[in-house]
Amino acid sequence: MPLDTSTYGLALLRVDGRRWNELRRIHAQIRTQAAADGSSYLEMGHTKVMCVVTGPSEPGPRRGAAGGAAGGGGGAGGQSKDAEVVVNIVIAGFSSVDRKRRGRGDKRTLEMQSTLANTLAATLHTHLFPHSQINISLHVLSQDGSLLAALINAATLACVDAGIPMTDYVTACTAGSTSTYAANDEGADPLLDLNHQEEQELPGLTVATLGDSDRVVALVCESRVQISRLEGMLAVGVDGCKQVREILDQVIKAQGQKMILEGTVDKGTGLNDMDLD
């Protein structure tokens, strides 16, 4: 069994050999499901998720009362002038080590669904699609920390693939701190992109920003941490989001390039400024 997070101070190395400001390997693909309106597959280290977007489309028949039983609804209901964003997350039983089955009503899943729906509803131009619904299904295949961040990134990619107009990329990552709350270590370093072990042992937060800017669109912190450390963690997190944006941007551009070369789309006017070399 490997060492725990307390050995960071010995050589400034984290449990998996990274430095404090390094992201894990991110691998992403879009248009993985040809039949869907938009789809993506994303890995951040060993956290693997896939996303399928359907819509904007006419809302299906509602079950039960308003508000929707299926996951968190962002934006307004199907009758209003904005499109409703419906997020559904399925966490596969085999995704974590202890094979725990999470049911539909799992509180943590519900909370992630509503965070995601609210974040996306604020960024997607839902006012362009009145009386309609955007369905985002996310499947978690493997978990190794920073789950919410991976889900946000995958959803962004899938929305781009589906061609839904949006303000900018929403990219997310996690940030933590090298010592526990109780240790109360003044000189604790901030950490970027926590894996599962670090998430278990150390305080951390998830932050999502809009595009290249410093505008924070989602911030979730569920652990106890000294206020003095928060600023450093947030700065590192926002910086991480920018790095993630670069990576996602490359993925989108590479896909676009491929599509033009294959002739799937015309090299339209809007794509003039896209580098083809």
Binding site: M1, P2, A11, L13, V15, D16, G17, R18, E22, R24, R25, G45, H46, V97, D98, D144, N195, Q197
Partner: peptide
């Protein structure tokens, strides 16, 4: 990857896979 097997207190056996990032600046 670092792959190892551990058994929990309740007697379950778990296979753990962890990433290892190799570097040259140590």
């Amino acid at each position: 990857n670092k792959i190892y097997v551990r058994s929990t207190k309740s007697g379950k056996v778990q296979k753990i896979v962890r990433e290892v990032y190799l570097r040259q600046d140590i």
